[in-house]
Amino acid sequence: MCSFYTRSPADGGQFYYDRVNVSSPHHDGKMHTPYPPSTGDLIHLWDFVKKQGGTYEVIARQWLHSSYGSTNWPVLEQQPTVGPLLELIVEPAEGVLRDQALRPEDEEETQ
């Protein structure tokens, strides 16, 4: 399960972190996926609560695995009942074609 947080600058070199509530059939605001994005990946997110979204770059990831004997991994169970949790920090980004230049023939057509 992935939780996303947008990072924006605050005073004094610190940051604000705001949760992105991703729509899912689990209604928990998290993305349930076997293929979480890696640091540096671009991902489009839509916050269904704030009704806003865009393209973001993953800048940091933090994993949390269940401990044996915890609520999420009961004693005598072979594996946890809840998979690892992943928190991802993202910043607004432009798409992969952000540095695309117009070809000279394309510029002539727009004039």
Rank of each mutant, 00 (worst) to 15 (best):
Q62Y: 03
P80D: 11
L88R: 06
Q52T: 14
L76P: 00
P74D: 10
P80R: 04
N72T: 14
Q52W: 14
L88F: 00
L64C: 03
G83H: 07
Y68P: 09
L85K: 09
E57P: 01
L76K: 09
W63N: 00
N72Y: 12
L86Y: 02
E57A: 07
R61P: 00
T71F: 08
V75N: 10
Q78K: 12
L86K: 08
S70P: 01
Y56N: 01
Y68E: 12
S67Q: 13
G69P: 06
E87S: 14
W73K: 15
L76I: 02
L85V: 08
W63A: 01
E77F: 07
P84T: 10
L86Q: 06
Y56L: 03
G83M: 01
L86E: 07
G53M: 10
Q78E: 08
S67L: 05
T81D: 13
P80M: 06
E87K: 15
W63F: 00
T71W: 05
W63V: 02
E87V: 13
S66E: 06
W63G: 00
T55C: 14
W63Y: 04
L85N: 11
I59S: 04
G53A: 09
T55H: 07
K50R: 15
G69R: 01
G83T: 06
I89E: 15
G69E: 10
N72M: 03
Y68R: 10
W73A: 15
V75A: 11
R61A: 08
Q52C: 11
Q79K: 12
L86M: 13
Q78A: 12
P80G: 14
E87I: 07
Q79S: 14
G69W: 04
E87L: 05
Q62H: 04
H65I: 09
S67G: 11
E77Y: 04
Q78T: 09
I89A: 12
V82E: 04
A60W: 00
V82W: 06
N72D: 13
S66C: 04
V58D: 01
P84W: 10
L64P: 00
R61V: 02
E77I: 03
E77K: 08
R61H: 02
L85D: 08
E87Q: 14
T81H: 10
E57L: 04
W63E: 02
K51V: 13
V49D: 13
T71N: 09
G54E: 09
S66W: 00
L85I: 05
I59T: 14
E87D: 14
L88A: 10
T81I: 11
Y68W: 01
